[in-house]
Design a protein around this nucleic acid. Structure first.
Lengths: 332, 332
DNA sequence: ATGAAAGCGCTAACAA
DNA sequence: TTGTTAGCGCTTTCAT
């Protein structure tokens, strides 16, 4: 049977409120009293009941995190970043996995929102409208998405595309294929936007290959189209897709990177382990998680911290397996 | 401002207790009353405050899950299994990541245990003693570990080793290397146990290569020793290690599987994507998660369900990239 | 079948 | 600085 605050009070010979103060606002009680209480609490192994506290303060000390798919290697890293910060701040983390289902996501939000101080939505699949609804009722931080003025942590995809293109151009590539991700995805739209801007500026020919599932299988399916396009390099929506392309090319006996260079996006652990290792646009996954929690935390303490309500994190191209140009660039 | 049970009562024109009953024990009120209440609740968008409920019932409707490292691709799958079942049962899931630190794990357990009905510890790194402590105070389910009579979901590693060895033997291998995992790991001990039993029975020579970190880098480090051992096949502690070995061998120009066959354990997604794809002992990851939650759930509803307090799940060897024998087996 | 009242463990006015 | 009181939102006796 866990002991309560009243037990501590009795043992220490003070009133319950004194115990409450001694533990929560140590400088509102005399030092002697504080120590007396502390000793009693220790002796009883007292642990405050957070639910009871939350009932009255209106704050639970919990945050909720919703991800579309834990099996996608991107999210566990973000989650680790959130966890690390939450632990330091003594917040507990509710986690829910929506299984890529927008409707389930909405349900989970509803279920969780009552038990948390705030919600972090990672790459949410919900419609803008639903997100705006949520954000109007609960403190909300978005990761990898922007909706209106909702606080958000995003990643500078446009710069990532620029870096990737600059890298390929420096290696002599002039014709580059793009294997796109899901049509509805915010990330995909942003990446395409960056791609178009930078390729236009750099005078590169860029063939966009439409929409594929953001998975290994998606990459396998796209690979043959890429080959047919006669591009000398390909940038994939993410590393999983890139690895799918690599796998299919290897199976077809098309050597990578000699014949075709591949660049992914995300820098998931797998990318380093493939052969050849994958050049990829590294996203700050844990950092994004940390930033998301920090933003949430500041929103929670000063509800008008709207000035700091957005952050865009930098990305860094990671050059691995050679991505040298295959054939000499066509002379102009 | 969320509406409370009293609001519903006022709108419906009944007492708070009636509302409580109508919602929680529908057959304790007249049908007409129940519908009246239901309508009022719907109209107000009423959502019961679970903390307040928990305060009085002593049950929170939450469970806690602790994993050593989310970045290890094994755990997200287990977690998905737990999540799926928890969602159906309307439980919310607290998640904590201990960063492979036994001490942190103990702290997290303490912090969480007050806010949950039960705890699921995945591959816990704590000492037996600490686990026993936890289990004596909180309903606890272990995954991938056994400690005393604590309820646990385990995996039949011994049979996995048997299957792997039988497979290799059938392909003509007679000398097999084993690259072991962390010394303190329960899983490693179990795997070694299975290995010894089955290799003795099958009359195979088995060289054990000591303890390596259960990571890609660990496999890279072990690879050269494996080659030097002159074994024709190697079984690695897990897929990450196996992929590390594969990577190093490929880099050295040693062809896999012609010269050396590799078998991993876990069946993480990466294993399918490597070249050659990895033969591996597939563990029921999501199923383990589901089983863990189900066990927890039954313990929570009938505290004396100790008869069902253990389950060992079957494993299945997944044969992929050929693992044919290299040289003809030495004639006896 | 329903209502009134008490109280879960805690904190926050308000007094002293 | 400390104690007293009230009450957060809900469930559950105990009456009716």
């Amino acid at each position: 049977v866990p002991s309560t605050l009243r037990d501590v009070a009795r043992v220490a010979g003070v009133s319950p409120s004194t115990v409450s103060r001694a533990l929560a606002n140590p400088d509102m009680v005399r030092t002697a009293t504080r120590e007396l209480v502390q000793r009693a609490a220790d002796r009883l192994g007292y642990q405050p009941n957070r639910a009871a506290r939350g009932l009255i303060t209106g704050r639970t000390g919990n945050i909720g995190v919703i991800v579309p798919d834990l099996a996608n290697p991107f999210f566990p890293h973000v989650l680790k970043g959130i966890q690390a910060r939450a632990r330091d701040a003594e917040y507990a983390v509710f986690l829910a996995d929506s299984d890529e289902d927008p409707a389930a996501e909405v349900d989970l939000v509803r279920a969780l929102s009552k038990q948390v101080d705030g919600l972090i939505l990672c790459s949410p699949r919900m419609r803008d409208h639903d997100i705006a609804d949520v954000a109007s009722e609960t403190v909300t931080v978005l990761v990898n998405r922007r909706v209106g003025r909702t606080p958000a942590i995003t990643t500078d995809y446009a710069d990532g595309m620029r870096q990737a293109l600059a890298h390929l151009e420096a290696l002599g590539h002039r014709h580059i294929a793009w294997v796109g991700g899901p049509r509805m995805s915010w990330s995909n739209r942003e990446r395409v936007r960056g791609l178009r801007t930078s390729s236009a500026a750099a005078d590169l020919v860029c063939t966009e290959m439409g929409h594929f599932p953001p998975t290994f299988a998606g990459g396998v399916a796209a690979a043959d189209l890429v080959v047919a396009s006669e591009a000398t390099a390909v940038i994939a929506y993410n590393d999983l897709v890139a690895l799918g392309i690599l796998s299919r090319l290897t199976a077809r006996g098309i050597s990578v990177p000699e014949r075709l260079s591949i660049v992914g996006i995300d820098d998931i652990p797998m990318s380093e382990m493939s052969h050849p290792a994958l050049t990829t646009v590294g996203l700050p996954k844990e950092a994004a998680g940390r930033a998301a929690f920090d933003l949430m935390h500041s929103l929670l303490s000063q509800p008008d911290a709207l000035n700091a309500a957005r952050r865009e994190l930098p990305v860094q191209l990671i050059v691995r397996g050679s991505t040298g140009v295959a054939r000499p660039p066509p002379s102009h």
